[in-house]
Design a protein around this nucleic acid. Structure first.
Lengths: 180, 180
DNA sequence: TTAGACATGTAACCAGTTACATGATTTG
DNA sequence: CAAATCATGTAACTGGTTACATGTCTAA
């Protein structure tokens, strides 16, 4: 049971999902490919934290729909209340900034424009997620209280939005400094 | 030559350093232990990107001081101007927020207080680095222009400060929401 | 009919962490 | 003399990425 395993349990605690769905939904939260996820699901199923039933579909290929078990929910609940590890950020841009003096100012600007584009597209995505979460909240008839299943999701999306806005602000600031 | 290798070259392009120094200096920019760094230095030395001379010390154990070569500088210059990979952030807190509804609001607050403490200590460290960089700038008689070796370093530290301030702001906001 | 989304898996490789191993020198 | 810092290395393991492999179903 590593962090990714708990991440998968987190997603399953909100709603039952297939392995394929999980690879899609986890993307904005954790970098992991399907080749990492399928074996973990098999292992968690063997440990009794999740169970699946085969869903036969006519419009799409059949799938395994995973549901979190009581044991899985207990395991997750215990993990959530433990202190979180420090975040790990690996950003090439840090090194490129460090040796920026080697670069033509024009190339440095391009570096920052590229990063801005990335942050903007991320920001757009998270803003869409905010709407999706609000729809879900209404569907579930939930309030804005901390106990609601959609509250933490809302907080998470807000966090990512703030992160991206801050990154954009940095890029704008750095570009101004490079103009001089 | 992976990202970490270029990171080491970046540090060496600013000043000659020992393997031990590099493990210390790289910490705020990239998570990597000495066991990863020493073999990479040996490999880069063999490829001719860096060279070292043995420094005999009386107050401390002897060390190898690595210097970037012309070939290494050319390699680095070429890398710096290439577009940067997207940043990778792995933060357990994301998953813990996602399943926050499973947690007691008091435990959720503790989670955020812990994160705030971490961000504050990081912020303090970067603010100190800002002063150290300014001292170095004066020592080198450099201006605040983009061509100066201390300019990119300044930008990098400013970026990290903005990141930490944004994270702190999120924690404060989330704590307010949890109070209600 | 072919490109793309849906769906699930394994194998090989690379990057990063933890543990093992050794030793100099200083400071309390 | 013990603990802390400086200093350099290797081995084993874990986590993550890329490539290999296969197949369904839909829409253009």
């Amino acid at each position: 049971m590593n962090t990714l395993s708990y991440g998968l349990l987190s997603l399953l605690s909100f709603a039952p999902l297939s392995g394929y769905d999980l690879t899609q939904k986890i993307k904005p939260l954790w970098q992991a490919g399907h080749s990492q996820i399928y074996p973990l699901l098999a292992s968690m199923e063997q440990q009794g934290y999740i169970s699946y039933k085969l869903i036969e579909q006519t419009d799409k290929p059949d799938k395994k729909e995973y549901t979190i078990t009581e044991a899985g929910l207990a395991q997750l609940r215990q993990w959530v209340e433990m202190p979180a590890e420090h975040p790990v950020l690996r950003d090439e841009l840090h090194f490129k900034l460090y040796s920026l003096w080697l670069s033509e100012p024009q190339k440095a600007k391009e570096l920052l424009y590229q990063r801005m584009e990335f942050c903007q597209s991320e920001l757009d995505r998270y803003n869409e997620m905010l709407g999706g979460n609000e729809t879900l909240r209404e569907e579930r008839g939930e309030s804005h209280e901390p106990k609601a299943t959609t509250f933490g999701r809302y907080m998470l999306i807000r966090k990512r939005i703030m992160d991206m806005e801050s990154s954009l602000q940095f890029c704008k600031y750095a570009l101004e400094e490079l103009e001089i």
